[in-house]
Computed example of a mutant assay.
Amino acid sequence: MPPGIRQPPPPWRLVLLLAGVAAYAAAVYWTSRRPSELTVLLAAFPFVWFAGVGAGQALDARQGPSRRTVALLPLVLVLAVLGLSWNHLLANFRLLYLVDHVGVHAGLCWLFGRSLLPARTPLCTEMAGWVHEDMSCPRLLWYTRQVTLVWAVFFGGIASASIMVYAVCAPATWTLFSALLCPLLTGAVFLIENAARSLFLPPKDRVGLTGTWQAVRARLDAQAVARTSGDPQ
């Protein structure tokens, strides 16, 4: 292990996460070809999950009543829409999947892209700081900025391509693209970027897949602590 980089533990959570993503993608593809109420439940799951994460803040007793109400509101609205529009969603489940798919990738594009604005720290540079003791290397700063740009462009391209495929191709083609091809493309870009580090970075500044996963977890954990303590991040 090069000096200056902390040794991360085995990425068991990453393995479980990837297995879960693969299982969800397979379930989406299978149920889309055999529409049922399960199809709508799977399509609605990301909306409920994200709203539920926000609603979790309402459980913190340190939050004031108004902030707890605001935190609960998205979950209440999502559940209300599902309840009132269930039959309509069952007849138009692919549109729900489209909003889900485009929304997630557009959101990721925005997340990476906004960090490239002046006076901001590129997201990949910020994540690299969690595993590198020394971030003063200009090459490392340049590389992490370029990787941030690559991910922003990639996620923006996926969101745009999803809309185009949905508009001009058969429903089965869009389902194949969104549920199976997109996860494979994302994994391929991640592996290519990991391999590219050996070309652009010196050995002391290279972090493998495990280290990258630890960086993401550390950042999310820090943000969660900051939210519950009321400190800005």
Score class of each variant (00 low, 15 high):
Thr175Asp: 12
Gly20Cys: 14
Ala91Met: 12
Pro138Phe: 02
Ala44Trp: 05
Val150Trp: 11
Thr144Cys: 04
Ile158Pro: 02
Pro122Leu: 02
Leu77Arg: 06
Arg13His: 13
Gly4Ser: 12
Gly54Glu: 14
Trp130Asn: 04
Gly107Glu: 13
Gly211Tyr: 05
Pro2Cys: 07
Asp134Arg: 09
Asp100Thr: 10
Thr148Lys: 01
Ser160Glu: 08
Gly103Pro: 08
Arg197Val: 07
Tyr166Arg: 04
Val70Phe: 09
Met1Glu: 09
Leu41Phe: 06
Arg197Lys: 15
Asn194Thr: 14
Pro74Val: 07
Phe112Gln: 00
Ser66Gly: 10
Ala22Asn: 04
Asp205Glu: 13
Ala167Pro: 02
Pro8Thr: 07
Val78Asn: 03
Leu184Pro: 05
Gln233Ile: 09
Phe154Gly: 04
Pro8Gln: 10
Ile192Ser: 11
Asp100Trp: 13
Val28Thr: 04
Ser229Cys: 08
Phe47Val: 05
Val168His: 10
Gly211Gln: 09
Thr125Asp: 04
Asp60Ser: 05
Tyr97Pro: 01
Gly230Asn: 05
Trp130Gly: 03
Leu73Ser: 09
Gln57Pro: 00
Gln233Thr: 12
Pro35His: 07
Ala80Gly: 13
Ala215Asp: 00
Leu14Gln: 05
His132Ser: 08
Leu73Ile: 12
Val99Gly: 10
Pro35Arg: 06
Arg145Ser: 00
Ala167Lys: 01
Asp134Trp: 08
Ala218Phe: 07
Arg67Lys: 13
Pro171Gly: 13
Ala119Asn: 09
Pro122Gly: 07
Arg13Trp: 11
Ser36Asn: 00
Tyr24Asn: 00
Asp231Cys: 08
Ala170Leu: 01
Asn92Glu: 11
Asn194Asp: 14
Leu14Cys: 00
Pro74Trp: 02
Trp174Leu: 03
Gly4Trp: 10
Met164Ser: 09
Ala195Arg: 15
Asn87Met: 12
Leu123Gln: 06
Thr148Asp: 03
Ala43Gly: 10
Arg13Ala: 14
Ile192Lys: 02
Gly211Thr: 10
Phe155Arg: 05
Pro118Met: 03
Gly208Ala: 07
Arg120Ile: 01
Thr144His: 01
Leu42Arg: 00
Leu18Ile: 15
Thr212Pro: 07
Leu73Val: 15
Ile158Gly: 05
Gly208Lys: 06
Gly211Leu: 10
Val131Glu: 02
Gly129Met: 09
Trp86Gly: 00
Gln7Glu: 08
Gly230Arg: 03
Pro183Arg: 06
Cys109Ser: 02
Val150His: 11
Phe93Arg: 07
Ala188Phe: 14
Thr125Met: 00
Phe47Cys: 03
Cys169Lys: 06
Leu38Trp: 13
Gln223Phe: 12
Thr39Ala: 11
